[in-house]
Design a binder for these strands. Structure first.
Lengths: 113, 113
DNA sequence: TCCAATACCTAAGTTATTGATGTATATTTG
DNA sequence: CAAATATACATCAATAACTTAGGTATTGGA
C-alpha cells in the first residue's frame, strides 16, 4: 500500500469535516464512513482515531455525549462553536498546502486538473 | 503560521522532483530553490534536509559527487535510474493522496466565516 | 574586522502515527 | 446454540519524520 506518512496531520481535519457534515458521529462510525468514502483506500486505525478524538475534546473543538445502545456505550462527538471555526480553517490550510506543493511539483507536469 | 505536520512525508518527493527538474543540485541549493518556488512559504530546515538526502542515497535513489568551490566542499546530488522511477511514483502517490482527501473533504468545501 | 551568507553535518526532543493488546457486548452463521 | 465475527470503546510501546539547537568551516561584503 502507499505511504501513510502523507496522512500525518490530516486526521483531525478529516474528523472535523465529517462532524460538520453529519452533525454528530461516534468513533467507530467515523472509521466506517472514511472507509466507504474512500472505497477502502483509507482505513483509520483505532489507535490513531481515539487519541485524536480525545485531543480534540481536550482542545474544546468537539464535545461528547454518551448513549447506551443496549448495554453498549456509544460516545457521540459533535462540534463546539470553536470546532465549527476550526473546520473551515483546517480545510483551507489543507488547500493551501496542496497549492504550495503544486508550485513545487507541477512545473513540468503542468496544466492538468 | 500553518501546520507543518502536513509536510511529513512530502520532503523526499520534493527533493526527487527538483533533482529531475534540474539534473543535479546540492543541499543548500535545494533549500533555496524551495524557498523561492513557494515565495518563502516553505522553508526546508537543514535538520530535515540532510538526513533525508542521506537516506535517499542509502536507498540508492540518488548518488553524489563532491566538488570543491574554492576550499569549500559542495556535494552534488543527482538521480539514479532507480531514483528516476521513484519520482513519477512519488508524485502520483501524492496526487492520489490529494484526490483521496478530496473524496472526504469536498462534499461541501464552503467558505463561510 | 566582523557579520551574514554559504555549505556541510549531527543529535536530542517532539509528535502523530502503527500495531498490538485488552475488554465487553451484539449479531450472524454453521 | 456455539463460535466466529462485528461493533465499540480504550491504552501503550515502538517507529518515523520532523524541529530546534548546536557544531565546523569557508567566503563575501560593509
Amino acid at each position: 500500500m502507499h505511504s501513510k506518512e502523507l496522512l500525518k496531520g490530516t486526521l483531525k481535519t478529516i474528523i472535523l469535516k465529517l462532524l460538520r457534515e453529519h452533525g454528530r458521529m461516534y468513533g467507530y462510525e467515523i472509521t466506517q464512513k472514511v472507509r466507504v468514502l474512500t472505497s477502502g483506500e483509507l482505513v483509520i486505525t483505532e489507535g490513531a482515531l481515539y487519541p485524536a478524538l480525545h485531543k480534540l475534546e481536550r482542545d474544546q473543538l468537539v464535545r461528547t455525549e454518551q448513549e447506551y445502545i443496549g448495554r453498549r456505550v456509544r460516545r457521540y462527538y459533535s462540534l463546539t462553536p470553536l470546532g465549527e471555526q476550526a473546520v473551515g480553517q483546517k480545510v483551507r490550510e489543507f488547500d493551501a498546502f496542496v497549492q504550495m506543493m503544486r508550485q513545487i511539483l507541477s512545473p513540468s507536469t503542468a496544466t492538468d486538473d
